[in-house]
């Protein structure tokens, strides 16, 4: 296994994350998830343009647009990663991932942006359908 500097063994990091999951269910009764928060965010944004229309949509009635445990969990993932990266010197501003750059070149920023954006649309549509 080739680990870069500052990386933890993935088995150890994974097992510790399992412990965090156990304590979350124990203390807060909450199982990990992320994609529901994207629905709530979409609903909150749509409310800015027409609250009545959002109120009439059955999916937003089921997944109401508001900030809850999971929404803060998702914000926490961003902050936790930021802290881990900054304190270990592995923070790196990158517009194009290394593997992508090898195939499409370092300057394919807009190509990467369009692919990621479309990929995001498709991935979230599928994730929500499978209830994941």
């Amino acid at each position: 296994m080739k680990l870069d500097k500052g990386a933890w063994n993935p088995y150890l990091a994974g097992a510790l994350s399992g412990l965090v999951g156990i304590f979350s269910v124990w203390f807060a009764g909450q199982y990990f998830g992320a994609s529901t928060s994207f629905v709530r965010t979409a609903g909150m944004i749509e409310q800015l343009f027409g609250a009545e229309r959002v109120a009439q949509m059955s999916y937003y009635a089921k997944t109401t647009p508001h900030i809850d445990w999971q929404w803060m969990f998702v914000v926490g993932i961003f902050l936790g990663s930021l802290i881990a990266a900054l304190t270990s010197g592995s923070f790196k501003l990158q517009a194009v991932p290394d593997m992508w750059a090898k195939r499409f070149g370092k300057h394919s920023v807009s190509r990467r942006a369009i692919t990621a954006f479309i990929g995001g649309i498709v991935a979230m549509f599928g994730a929500r359908m499978a209830d994941g």
């Binding site: 990386a7 999971q70 969990f73 936790g80």
Partner: peptide, 19 residues
């Protein structure tokens, strides 16, 4: 909300460390 933020923080930290 605080539980969510703290749990996410720990999880995000481990995700980053695990690369």
């Amino acid at each position: 909300l605080i539980y969510g933020l703290v749990t996410g923080l720990l999880f995000g930290f481990l995700l980053q460390k695990g690369r």
